[in-house]
């Protein structure tokens, strides 16, 4: 099955999954996410000895909050960059826009059924995923949900002079619990599920390189995005070895 070099960029046909904008957005989310987690967890678990050490490293409670807000602002900037890029992309591709990250994109539910049938051993047919698997949709929309739960509550807590003109204290208190609990969920989710999917699962170990060069080999495309590969091949002849195809023409990529 999967050969050990499958995940590495090689002198074979590769397909571009992420252009430079996608990769920048991924970086702009994950780097501040790590900083937010590092500076936020000590605030939630402030009684632990490690929390005190981390806080001391970042300059006490005030320094911790400064870097936490700094990272939060970076995530907001990335999100607006992503929304702006997506809007411009949609304008440029007017009349030919397929938003493949939407859960009702073509093939999602068929592939989901195939996925569980395959994993439970009911069928030997490998699931054929479209441009985005249900896992990727889950990750993507989780960030949207997180921006409202964590980003929204973060802004309300950051500017109490604004917040308390409109909201009572119990609302802000409850929103703060949502902020940190959702954050713990996000951190746990990323470091189990996302890390399994792109790092630890045998096809990708040590990692999927899409985040770095945006490319995926044909072998992995068959496994991970079989339906998309078929569609690319139907509409467009595969390029020769050692080149990168850009499937954006027949199958535009959104973000």
């Amino acid at each position: 099955m999967a050969d050990i070099n499958a995940g590495f960029p090689q002198n074979k046909t590769v397909y571009q999954r992420w252009n430079i904008h996608h990769r920048l957005v991924h970086f702009g989310i994950y780097a501040p996410f790590i900083l937010c987690g590092l500076t936020g967890l000590p605030i939630k678990f402030h009684h632990k000895a490690w929390a005190q050490s981390v806080a001391a490293f970042f300059g006490g409670g005030d320094g911790l909050l400064f870097w936490h807000l700094f990272a939060g602002v970076l995530i907001f900037i990335t999100c607006f960059y992503h929304l702006g890029y997506s809007a411009i992309w949609a304008m440029k591709n007017r009349g030919n826009v397929t938003i493949t990250i939407l859960p009702w994109a073509k093939g999602t539910w068929t592939a989901l059924k195939q996925y569980f049938a395959y994993q439970f051993g009911k069928s030997d047919e490998h699931p054929k995923f479209g441009r985005y698997q249900w896992k990727e949709m889950f990750d993507y929309w989780a960030v949207f949900w997180g921006m409202f739960m964590i980003g929204g509550s973060g802004l309300l807590m950051w500017f109490p002079e604004f917040t308390f003109q409109f909201f009572p204290k119990w609302f802000v208190d409850a929103y703060r619990w949502a902020h940190s609990d959702e954050a713990v969920l996000a951190v746990t989710f990323i470091f189990t599920w996302h890390f399994y999917n792109v790092h630890f699962q045998p096809d990708f170990f040590p990692m999927s390189w899409v985040w770095w060069n945006g490319n995926m080999s044909e072998e992995l495309m068959e496994l991970e995005h079989g339906l998309e590969l078929e569609m690319i091949k139907e509409k467009q002849a595969p390029a020769g070895r050692g080149t990168t195809t850009t499937p954006t023409k027949g199958f535009p990529s959104s973000g």
């Binding site: 119990w170 609990d181 969920l185 746990t188």
Partner: peptide, 21 residues
């Protein structure tokens, strides 16, 4: 109370999500 139930809700959300994956 609202904070309490928010905490309960998100605890179960975490257990549910992480359990599922």
């Amino acid at each position: 109370a609202v904070s309490y139930w928010t905490l309960i809700l998100f605890t179960w959300l975490l257990i549910g999500c992480i359990g599922f994956v």
